[in-house]
């Protein structure tokens, strides 16, 4: 028996490209499916949320100003980084009680989903935008533009695939995101943040907060500088509260569909409409000349 004591990782938040602790200094225990503590994870508060929204707002214009091609490259790079650490991700996913083979499949599906959305970065405008027929000497063009800062309340499970499936379509169009990670299984989200930080993703484009979501979600929904909420991770009660709080700022809330979501099914769990959900259509009239 060697007397070596294992070096445990400190799981921190991901805000503005950095990995800070919560301003409160608090943590909470992340358990595995057997109820054993695997790590202590930062417990973010509404002040951390406020900071994350500020970072996301600051990062948004330049992220949206990049070419779609460049955003696609960066999201593809995230996929590369996840592939590189696939074994680490699989181990984290297994903590939730997922069998080894299934955990590996979830990781690979997450990577493929990132690549799939990366490909849409310079194509979704062509599908969602349009040259509209009008009765006059005008070009009438509709183009989608990113909504702005979007809050993502990630599904509790599957922690990795659920987060990737909801986050990728948000940022691909030029939105920036503030993510409330799975509270029950936070570890994969933190590891994903580490992959993002090494993937050329500019600081502030994705901000990931771990901790009690009931303390943060109402402030996220009522925050007037957040333009939309993806609430796939909210249960029915939470969703009603979010919609009410979001009403003051006329903020879009996208809730989960009825019934179980087949996250592994590419035909239903990934769609260009998920990108369209957080874009705004700008229509321009332009004279054709005589």
């Amino acid at each position: 028996m060697s007397g070596r004591i294992g070096v445990r990782k400190t799981y921190k938040l991901y805000v503005d490209g950095d990995f800070p602790r919560s301003e409160s200094g608090r943590t909470y225990p992340a358990l595995d499916h057997r109820g054993e503590v695997i790590a202590r994870v930062a417990a973010a508060t509404r002040k951390d949320l406020r900071g994350a929204v500020r970072a996301a707002r600051r990062a948004q214009p330049s992220w949206a100003a990049r070419t779609g091609y460049n955003r696609g490259q960066i999201i593809y790079r995230i996929a590369e980084m996840v592939e590189d650490r696939a074994a680490v991700f699989a181990a984290q996913v297994r903590m939730a009680g997922v069998a080894a083979a299934k955990a590996r499949r979830e990781v690979f599906r997450s990577i493929d989903r990132l690549v799939w959305y990366a490909g849409w970065a310079d194509k979704y405008q062509q599908v969602i935008g349009n040259l509209n027929p009008v009765a006059g000497p005008f070009f009438n063009i509709s183009v989608p533009e990113p909504t702005g800062v979007v809050g993502v309340i990630a599904p509790e499970a599957p922690a990795l695939l659920g987060l990737v499936s909801r986050l990728a379509p948000v940022i691909v169009s030029g939105n920036t995101a503030v993510v409330l990670a799975s509270e029950r299984w936070p570890a994969p989200s933190v590891v994903l943040a580490e992959a993002m930080a090494t993937a050329d993703l500019p600081g502030g484009v994705v901000n990931i907060l771990t901790g009690p979501r009931s303390g943060m979600a109402p402030y996220l929904a009522s925050h007037l500088d957040v333009n939309g909420i993806d609430a796939y991770g909210a249960d029915e009660d939470m969703l009603a509260g979010l919609e009410e709080a979001a009403a003051a700022g006329v903020k879009r809330v996208v809730g989960p569909p009825e019934g179980r979501i087949a996250w592994m099914d590419d035909r239903t769990a990934q769609s260009p409409y998920a990108i369209a959900a957080f874009t705004e259509i700008k229509t321009v009239w332009h004279p054709k000349g005589l």
Partner: peptide, 9 residues
């Protein structure tokens, strides 16, 4: 009001 504000307003 208890809700975070935006410079837009």
């Amino acid at each position: 009001e208890g809700r975070y504000q935006s410079p837009d307003y």
